[in-house]
């Protein structure tokens, strides 16, 4: 995935049955972001695979003052990449989940 300078990871073990994920996002490469942001803070949030969209979460993060409007695309993309990865992992190994 193209590097947005942001990192998104599971904040908790994925139990695969729950549609709500606990994710954590932080700035790994501040140079890649346009707007002002707090770079030594990780933001933990829940993401529901069925009802939430990366763009919506990114918009809420901008509105909460975590990121600048110009970086909301990068935030949404980093969330989307991680969520897509998690969905693929879940499809591949339903047995061990």
């Amino acid at each position: 995935a193209e590097d947005t300078g942001l990192r998104v990871e599971l904040a908790e073990e994925d139990d695969c049955s729950n549609s709500s994920l606990a994710l954590r996002l932080w700035v790994e490469d501040p140079k890649k972001l346009k707007g002002k942001h707090k770079d030594n803070e990780a933001i933990e949030f829940s993401f529901n695979l069925e009802t939430d969209t990366p763009e919506e979460v990114a918009y809420e993060m901008v509105r909460s003052g975590f990121f600048h409007e110009s970086d909301s695309k990068a935030v949404a993309k980093s969330i989307r990449d991680r969520v897509t990865l998690i969905k693929k992992t879940r499809e591949k190994k339903p047995a061990s989940c």
């Binding site: 990192r7 932080w26 490469d29 990780a42 933990e44 809420e60």
Partner: peptide
């Protein structure tokens, strides 16, 4: 930890905590 801050936005809860130094230099 005391540095953890909870921010509510449009019904979603964001928990802000410091990133461990080790994670920052990992990339």
């Amino acid at each position: 930890s005391s540095l953890t801050q909870v921010v509510h936005s449009a019904g979603r809860r964001f928990i802000v905590s410091p990133v461990p130094e080790s994670r920052l230099r990992e990339s």
